[in-house]
Design a binder for these strands. Structure first.
Lengths: 137, 137
DNA sequence: CTGTGTGCAAACTCTTTGCATAAGT
DNA sequence: ACTTATGCAAAGAGTTTGCACACAG
């Protein structure tokens, strides 16, 4: 069961044009093995190391960007100090909790953006990010 | 006329609890002297220096944060590599043009965010950022 | 005068890169 | 074997901080 999951991940990576190396498979398992996640490079590296994997932080950075380019991850611009990557690539938005820098998904269907003006000539909308910032009451 | 504008700016700064020093007044003039603006520290510093002011980059950073805390500016999280400050502090949103990293205001009335789920306990919404990312057609 | 602000350079954080080594196919 | 990925350490951007000097009130 676990073994077949690992094989699936290898297939996913291969299909994305990425060699399923030990590091990439390990990171993919952490990322996609348990529901939707929001991680920074630092967080993911910490998890990998704690789970006994030997991966360098530089490789985590590289891998996150490769996964993003392959469409397996989406980057979320929230705080400016660190890049968050989201394993949920479907249409949705985010609560951002300022006090601890954490993210919570908001289903895409919950928010409707209406009455947007026409974008300038020669440009098209690639994506609309809605970030709802939360602070303590 | 120009002199009275400068006096007004001094008053604004004083009212915000900030001494109207030469540097702060000069930066305020650049920021608030000509309609709504989106600047990074780097950009504003460049303008100040080019217009003959002696201001250090560190002071520009400090000043931008002081103005932000005083409610004269709003920070916009878009690209993650650099902090943008917006002189328009009313309710509005942004087009972000990925190719050159520039921002365009979208009037707040143009976008309606509907059907937001309740935020988690003990947290309240401080602000909703909508960033419409634009790419070349 | 007194306290606050400024400038400079150094420190710091997050991220990327170059190059020799290791691993996948 | 051949190619691509990895690790490390160094470099790089953007931002902040500490401290001596300068300036506003």
């Amino acid at each position: 069961m676990l073994q077949s999951r690992e094989k699936d991940l290898s297939e996913v990576l291969r299909h994305a044009g990425l060699r399923p190396t030990r590091q990439r498979v390990a990171l993919a398992k952490l990322l996609f093995g348990s529901g939707d996640r929001h991680v920074t490079a630092e967080i993911l590296h910490g998890e990998a190391v704690r789970s006994g994997q030997r991966v360098s932080l530089a490789t985590v950075y590289n891998t996150l960007h490769q996964f993003k380019q392959a469409g397996l991850l989406r980057e979320v611009a929230v705080c400016g100090q660190c890049a968050y990557f989201d394993t949920n690539i479907s249409n949705h938005n985010h609560y951002f909790i300022e006090s601890d820098g954490s993210l919570i998904d908001i289903p895409g269907s919950c928010i409707r953006v209406d009455g947007l003006p026409e974008p300038p000539e020669h440009l098209r909308i690639s994506h609309i990010d809605v970030v709802v910032r939360l602070v303590k009451k």
